[in-house]
């Protein structure tokens, strides 16, 4: 199922699942990721699943590229049926002070904000991966009518909780960070909680997410 395994530097395997980005390909990535996690292989010290790639980092004192490659090639991969998937609803307030780029999107996409929100809130999203910053979920796929490029000049500070769109994906800024996604609203939900060491991410790869529009009052109540 892995199309090609190569080395990324001297202490990581670069597993390529193909050039396409879709749920089927991503499911394969996640199945490998979970299978390797389950095996608890001595020497592997990190796994990074993404849309269509899986990077396996290892401790060069214990293992090397060829030994890990062999283990991965002979791995028992879990079935699709065993993949856990949670359904998660995320409240989002689109008040003016939160929807920083809605005007820009209206102009770029040539549709009204009402239509943008209608399409965004009536949709189930699939979590392809989490990362970049701790807990940030990459959610797809946006309807073609909502696909826009990143800001030409990224913001130095995107507020925590911001919900952003870029190309076929939506994401949520789990804390204040630089970033270039088109911000359409803000969620009061805690998406990443480092106090929960066993499960700090609210949203994990494979989960299904829907967004629910809330008013400013509801947003403020949420914070109390």
């Amino acid at each position: 199922m892995i199309k090609n395994i190569s080395n990324l530097g001297d202490a990581a395997l670069y597993c390529d699942f193909g050039t396409e980005v879709n749920k089927d390909v991503n499911n394969k990535v996640i199945r490998y990721f979970k299978s390797i996690q389950k095996e608890n292989i001595d020497g592997i010290n990190n796994l990074t699943p993404s849309y269509n790639k899986l990077i396996i980092s290892f401790d060069l004192r214990k293992k090397n590229f060829l030994t890990i490659k062999k283990l991965i090639e002979n791995l028992n991969v879990v079935n699709d049926d065993n993949l856990e998937s949670n359904k998660i609803r995320i409240p989002v307030c689109c008040d003016e002070k939160f929807s920083l780029d809605i005007k820009r999107l209206e102009e770029k996409l040539k549709i009204s904000r009402d239509k943008i929100y209608e399409k965004f809130f009536n949709k189930e999203f699939f979590c392809y991966m989490t990362g970049f910053i701790a807990g940030m979920p990459f959610l797809g796929d946006l309807e073609i009518a909502l696909r826009a490029k990143r800001l030409e000049t990224p913001r130095v500070k995107v507020p925590k909780g911001s919900v952003g769109l870029t190309e076929q994906f939506a994401n949520i800024y789990t804390f204040e960070s630089p970033g270039g996604w088109n911000i359409i609203g803000n969620t009061p939900s805690v998406i990443f909680d480092s106090a929960k060491e066993n499960n700090p991410n609210l949203i994990n790869p494979g989960d299904v997410v829907t967004f629910e529009q809330i008013t400013k009052d509801q947003y403020n109540d949420y914070n109390e």
């Binding site: 993404s50 790639k53 990077i55 980092s57």
Partner: peptide, 10 residues
């Protein structure tokens, strides 16, 4: 490229 994992030293 399509966003993917990084490691230190990349």
């Amino acid at each position: 490229i399509k966003s993917e994992g990084l490691i230190k030293g990349v």
